[in-house]
Amino acid sequence: MTVVAVAAATTRPSGRSARRWLAVAAATFAIAWGGNEFTPLLVMYRTQDGFSALTVDLLLFAYVLGIVPALLIGGPLSDRFGRRPLMLPAPVLAAVGSAILALGAQSAPALGVGRVFSGVALGLAMAVGGSWIKELSSPPWEDGDAGARRAAMSLTAGFGLGAGTAGVLAEWGPAPTVLPYAVNIAMALAAAALMRAAPETRTR
């Protein structure tokens, strides 16, 4: 019995490693935040920057050009090469997308490119980050089956808080075309640094 107990203690992850899913969830949250922060600013782009309704619709569609390929390709590639190689660049891509959106407020093509970057990042977060969170929430990393709920809540919270905060900052904060994106850049880069500690769960 003592030998069994010692073996179980040595194979069970520590409290620190059992919370490794939080780093991936933080990255997923930041990416979802960046993916939805553009939506409440559409009225501003139409009234302040003079974009037509068609241009705004095309900017929304540009998002799809990034998210769909990332969703279709990211999951299978992460099954083959592992979660880390596909997910680690995602928050950096989200930060790049937000930076382009912040710098290109007067240019519809620049905004479109930024939206594509945000879409690619979100597609990877949904296809790869969700799987990674679920695996880090399951044995041997952690007991229980809360992975699906954690993955869904990370995305949902990011979508909701990102849109709400961006709208508030654009309405009452300084530099309305820059500040909402600057917040996401800081969040995404911080999450990218934290996620480097998350262990791989998929054998290459």
Rank of each mutant, 00 (worst) to 15 (best):
M1T: 11
V3M: 10
V4D: 09
V6E: 14
A7R: 14
A7Q: 13
A8Q: 14
R12P: 00
G15S: 12
R20H: 06
W21E: 01
A25K: 03
A27M: 09
T28S: 14
G34R: 02
E37L: 13
T39Y: 08
P40K: 07
V43K: 08
M44G: 04
A53S: 14
D57W: 00
L59R: 04
L59S: 05
V64E: 04
A70M: 13
I73Y: 12
I73D: 04
G75L: 11
S78Y: 06
L88E: 09
P89F: 08
A90G: 06
A90L: 04
P91L: 07
P91A: 04
V96W: 00
V96T: 15
V96P: 01
A99M: 13
A102H: 06
L103D: 00
A108T: 05
G112K: 06
V113E: 02
V116Y: 01
V116T: 09
S118E: 11
L122P: 02
G123S: 02
L124F: 05
L124T: 08
A125F: 01
M126K: 00
I133D: 05
K134Q: 12
E135H: 06
S137A: 15
W141R: 05
E142R: 15
D143F: 08
G144S: 07
A146V: 10
R150K: 15
A152M: 14
A152D: 00
S154T: 04
L155S: 02
A157R: 02
G158T: 06
G158D: 03
F159R: 00
G160A: 13
L161E: 01
G162F: 03
V168Y: 11
L169I: 14
A170L: 03
A170K: 07
G173W: 06
P176I: 03
T177E: 13
V178K: 01
V178N: 07
N184F: 10
N184I: 10
I185C: 02
A186L: 15
A191Q: 06
M195Y: 02
M195E: 11
R196Y: 01
R196N: 01
A197T: 13
P199T: 07
P199K: 06
R202C: 10
